[in-house]
Design a binder for these strands. Sequence first.
DNA 1: AATATTTAAGATCTGAAATACCTAAATGAG
DNA 2: CTCATTTAGGTATTTCAGATCTTAAATATT
Lengths: 141, 141
Amino acid sequence: MSSIVKISEAASMALHAMVFLASEPDRVVPSKEVAARLGRSEAHLSKVMQRLAREGLVSSTRGPKGGFILKKGPRDISLLEIFEVMEGPLEETNCLLGRPICRGGNCIFGDLLRGVDRQAKEYLSKRSLWDLQGVFKGKDK
Amino acid sequence: MSSIVKISEAASMALHAMVFLASEPDRVVPSKEVAARLGRSEAHLSKVMQRLAREGLVSSTRGPKGGFILKKGPRDISLLEIFEVMEGPLEETNCLLGRPICRGGNCIFGDLLRGVDRQAKEYLSKRSLWDLQGVFKGKDK
DNA sequence: AATATTTAAGATCTGAAATACCTAAATGAG
DNA sequence: CTCATTTAGGTATTTCAGATCTTAAATATT
């Protein structure tokens, strides 16, 4: 099974973790709990959380009762922001081989790549954590 | 710079190589020449060609005057076919974390992933090598 | 027919990125 | 003040794409 979309597990976890934090407002949540809820590796997730903290999307506190909490309101954090913190700025791809072939708008991929990237960017930038309440509502398993 | 579209260099080379072969009908082209034309590593390209041969998209002959040639007419080879030979069957992705969260059509990514994959599949399946004549027409550099 | 040359096939190695592990530092609780 | 809890950060491991190297086959040359 392959897909044409590439999102690292790290970025995917970051997005999901942030959505989860948004569903637990005003509560400091330890990464262990987040990992459990996502059903993912504690080790890896903690690295991701660390990154989100360094980049200022969440604030962290150590020690007992420590954990992570959103630094801004859910309305003020877009999915794109989170994605870019993990994967770097999202740009539109042109032909993958670039020169010397496929130059000048005459590319094998036509406008597929640009179109898809633009669409993804649009999607991610238009959605804030606020818009994704509900994802973590149903009790799971 | 990051993109959300993932196509390996191998798959990209495969697509371009096939288009190039289509532009040289009835001629056996050595991989060295293809690599030169694409401006890519000979080593890597030859592995790609090897794969395409094993999968029956091109036929290969060794020795002097050897090389590769399309096995079917350009109208009968779609880009999707080539893509899938390299990357495996292209399926529509759902949520990347899958269970336990984001189940039942209530996913962070909404219909973005499915939509994009469907779009790509559509694009690739609708285009044959024949549709891409012209890409290699202009003399380059 | 023998040999050297050309070219693909196949196996193995390498390097970078992603992920997992492990120890140190901080903080609150008892 | 000591201990348990939890994040921080460095290091190790894994994985995989891409590169290198070796072998086999076909042809041309003599």
